[in-house]
């Protein structure tokens, strides 16, 4: 049977030719593009936020500044690990992460540049690194999501009440998820180890259902598999964008960390050869336009003064915020130990 080699050879030749042609094209278009800034290579952003959550902003910035931005999309934790492994040779200039924990981990590795005070001061102190190495760009609140079968009046004022008998087997959580773990870490820091342990163990004894992530919880509520779940506030808004009748609503428990606010944020990497450009981009993320984009398209909380969140959300100031330092919620070992020894993980 002579065909396999011939075929393989032909496919190989075609692929190589195409790869060559592809490179050629890119080279040409780069050189011939009149809009391309001469000499200045654009910055590279490692983004834990996916294209729909950031793409339009990148386009806008490119138009404005005339500079090219290269974006590498990935999962926040994977990108953080990648930056650490790359060390000094990292091609990244900016790390745009989905949660403060990953930013804290990069800060702890000493891989961030100090940000300019003007950028930092655009957001309240509780939404940025204490050392000024990263800054929050949008806020996400922990909420109790609930389904059609739940009377909103029955919802608890505190997430701690979900260990009560009436919630037996009706609650979902995602112990493997970063946002959830940040929430438990925050609970340990503000309410104490004992409260956090009692909560986790109480939930387990109450038949809490474990899910993979926020979206899985949300979908399980919609399907009627569970009645309530602990998730980030904007996931429901996203589902409603696809289907206005999506049968899940959100509740901000007024009393405690049930609606703790975490941030997505960004920092400039040490070793960037374009620190100025990178800083300008981070600053742009805190511009009015960018903040309005976060508020409108992803329904997150804008963090600068003068931009209001979506009307369906309670104002950021009304969410109780205990003295919680987001820089410290990268301390996850105790949380993992708690989740593992109690059997949640």
């Amino acid at each position: 049977m002579p065909w396999p080699q011939t075929l393989i050879a032909a496919i190989l030749a075609a692929l190589l030719a195409a790869a060559g042609a592809g490179c050629g094209e890119e080279g040409e278009s780069g050189a011939g593009d009149p809009d391309a800034p001469s000499g200045a290579e654009g910055i590279t952003v490692y983004s834990g936020r996916i294209p729909p959550e950031i793409g339009p902003l990148i386009d806008l910035y490119e138009q404005r500044s005339g500079k090219d931005i290269e974006v590498r999309f990935g999962e926040t934790a994977a990108l953080a690990a990648q930056i650490v492994e790359e060390g000094e040779n990292s091609p990244a200039d900016v790390f745009f992460a989905q949660d403060a924990g990953a930013l804290g981990a990069i800060e702890a590795e000493g891989r961030f540049e100090q940000l300019p005070a003007a950028t930092l001061e655009r957001v309240p102190a509780r939404f940025r690194s204490r050392a000024g190495e990263w800054v929050g760009t949008s806020g996400r609140a922990r909420v109790i999501a609930y389904g059609e079968d739940v009377d909103p009046d029955d919802l608890p004022d505190s997430v701690l009440d979900l260990t009560g008998e009436e919630w037996q087997g009706r609650v979902g959580w995602a112990p493997i998820n970063g946002s959830f773990q940040a929430f438990i870490t925050a609970m340990r820091l503000t309410e104490g180890e004992d409260v956090a342990r009692d909560f986790v163990e109480g939930m387990l004894a109450n038949g809490v259902q474990p899910y993979e992530n926020n979206i899985a919880i949300r979908d399980a509520i919609a399907a009627g598999e569970i009645d309530v779940g602990l998730i980030n506030h904007y996931y429901v808004a996203q589902a409603k964008a696809e289907d206005p009748d999506y049968p899940v609503e959100i509740h901000f428990p007024p009393n405690d960390l049930g609606s703790m606010v975490n941030v997505a944020g960004a920092g400039v990497l040490a070793g960037s050869d374009q620190v100025g450009e990178a800083e300008a981009f981070v600053d742009f993320l805190l511009s009015r336009e960018a903040q309005e984009f976060f508020a409108g398209s992803t329904e997150e909380y804008p963090l600068i003064d003068g931009v209001a969140p979506d009307r369906s959300l309670i104002p950021l100031d009304e969410i109780p915020h205990p003295a919680l330092d987001l820089s410290r919620i990268d301390d996850l070992e105790g949380t993992l130990e708690l989740l593992q020894s109690s059997g949640a993980l």
């Binding site: 493997i176 970063g178 070992e333 993992l336």
Partner: peptide
């Protein structure tokens, strides 16, 4: 594998 992911994803512990 889940154990590996937990250690890597949650505590950034290479």
């Amino acid at each position: 594998t889940r154990e590996i992911y937990i250690s890597f994803q949650s505590s950034f512990d290479r």
